[in-house]
Design a protein around this nucleic acid. Sequence first.
DNA 1: GTCGATGTTATCAA
DNA 2: TTTGATAACATCGA
Length: 278
Amino acid sequence: MPELPEVETIVRGLRACVIGRSVTGVQVLRQDVIRGYTPEFEEALIGHKVEEVLRRGKNIIIKLDGGLAMVVHLKMTGQFTCNRPEEEILKHTHLLINLSDGGQLRFRDVRRFGYVILVKLDLLTELPQLAAMGPEPLEITFEDFACRFRGRRQCIKAMLLNQRVVAGLGNIYADEALHRAGIHPETPADQLSEHNLRHLFEAVREVLSEAIARRGSSIENYVDAGGAAGTFQLYHRVYRKRGQPCPLCGTPIERITVGGRGTHFCPKCQKRSAGLQR
DNA sequence: GTCGATGTTATCAA
DNA sequence: TTTGATAACATCGA
C-alpha cells in the first residue's frame, strides 16, 4: 500500500542508484504488468541513460535520455528496488532492468495490480491518470486545498482518497490525518467549517511529512529502494487499531466502512458534529 | 476447503 | 453529476 510517503522514499533511494546509469539489459518475466506491452519494450529501453527520477502522487516517473519516460504504479503490493544481480530473485518478480554500473532494478508485485508504462516524454502529461491528478498536498497553499472541498457533499474520507482532488493520499494517511484533525470520516465536505478545513490541511501535511521522515509505513509489503522497511507504522494512531485505545483519550478505536474502504477513527475525538465544536 | 478481507484505481451501472 | 459496485490478483486467517 505505498502512498505518497512510501513512493517518495522509494524515489529518493532510486535517485542515488540509477541517475547517470544506462540500461544494459531488460528481462520481462511477466508481460501483463507492462501496460501496452509490445515486443519492442526491451529494445526501446536498452542503451538509454536515466536522467531524472520523480514522484507525482503515487506514481514513480523515471526519465531517460532520448525522450523516454517509464511510469511505475505500485498499487497495493508493488515493490521497486535496486539490487545486486546475484541476490535471489524473489517470487512475484516481474521485471528486471540491468544498469551500466552493475546494479539491477526489480519490479515485484504479489497481486499484480501494479504496472509499468513506457511512454514518450512529450506524451507523459497526457497519460489520463497523470493529467487528471489533483495537486501535491505538500506543495499547495491552504486556499488551493480548501477550495477543492467547499460545496461538495461527498464525505470527506472519500474525497481525500480521490486522486483527482488531492494526489498521494491512501487509506492509511487519510485515516491518520482525519484523526489528527478531529474530523469524523463520514462528514460531508460541505459541512466542514473553515476551522476544520484549516486543521485538516495542517494534519495532512504534518502526517505526510512525519511519515516521509520515518521512511514510510510498512504494513505488509512496502520496502524502500534498498529493500528496507519503513518505521512510521509504529506511530499510527488509528489505522488498523480497532479496539485499541485512542492515544489522545483512551476510547477504543472503531472500524467502519466508508466509500467501500475500511476506515478507522476515534468515536470521541472525531464526532460527526466536529464542525460545531470549538 | 471455503470465504471474506486486504487497498488502489479503472470501468461500468444506476 | 455522482455514487456505488465490480474486477484485476494472491495471500492469510477464521
